[in-house]
Amino acid sequence: MITSAMDEALSHYNCYTSIEKRLSVSYVPSVATADGNVNGSIRFGALSSMNYITAMHEISHTLGVGSFEFGAMVRDGVFTGEAATSQLRAITGNESDAVHADNQHFWPYGLNYTSEVETTDDLVNHCKMVIAIREDIGY
């Protein structure tokens, strides 16, 4: 299940980004759901987390979402990066949209829950947002 989830997740990242990152993926039963670290490790625990949407979310953590640099750009529940804000507004067409965030996650398009994905566009927009966030945090 993990291999299938990662294969599909990586197919989207490889299609819609040019980001390169070495990943180390493992099954760790003590992990409640799944987690990803900027060092490139992704650990899956729960069977319910072994899907491509969760895998894409965890890949985003390996790419800098939730890093110290990411958290430093969160103010009052908003990720303040100019590239990410501009990208979100280009996606939605709403010039007042803001990228909401805590120190670990962003939304919309953070794929924090599998229910956030309705179409392939949501996956493409996730990739676009990760690219913009990486620009903002200097990755």
Rank of each mutant, 00 (worst) to 15 (best):
residue 54 T to M: 10
residue 115 S to E: 13
residue 80 T to E: 09
residue 60 S to P: 08
residue 95 E to H: 00
residue 82 E to Y: 00
residue 92 T to G: 09
residue 127 C to Y: 11
residue 59 I to F: 14
residue 115 S to T: 12
residue 127 C to W: 00
residue 112 N to W: 03
residue 6 M to S: 06
residue 92 T to Y: 05
residue 121 D to M: 15
residue 111 L to R: 08
residue 85 T to P: 07
residue 30 S to Q: 11
residue 35 D to H: 09
residue 29 P to F: 09
residue 75 R to Y: 04
residue 41 S to I: 15
residue 65 V to N: 04
residue 10 L to T: 08
residue 70 F to P: 15
residue 16 Y to F: 12
residue 42 I to N: 08
residue 135 E to V: 07
residue 19 I to V: 05
residue 28 V to M: 06
residue 24 S to C: 08
residue 130 V to W: 02
residue 84 A to L: 09
residue 109 Y to M: 11
residue 95 E to T: 04
residue 15 C to A: 13
residue 11 S to A: 10
residue 69 E to G: 05
residue 112 N to P: 04
residue 77 G to Y: 06
residue 70 F to Y: 15
residue 39 N to A: 14
residue 2 I to D: 09
residue 25 V to Q: 13
residue 63 L to N: 10
residue 106 F to P: 00
residue 113 Y to C: 02
residue 24 S to R: 14
residue 106 F to H: 10
residue 125 N to E: 10
residue 124 V to S: 01
residue 74 V to G: 07
residue 131 I to Y: 00
residue 17 T to R: 03
residue 68 F to G: 06
residue 18 S to G: 10
residue 53 I to R: 13
residue 15 C to N: 12
residue 15 C to I: 01
residue 42 I to T: 08
residue 35 D to I: 12
residue 137 I to V: 06
residue 66 G to L: 07
residue 41 S to D: 12
residue 38 V to I: 15
residue 119 T to P: 01
residue 61 H to L: 15
residue 113 Y to E: 13
residue 24 S to Q: 04
residue 95 E to R: 05
residue 94 N to C: 06
residue 28 V to L: 03
residue 131 I to T: 13
residue 64 G to S: 08
residue 122 D to C: 15
residue 87 Q to A: 13
residue 26 S to A: 14
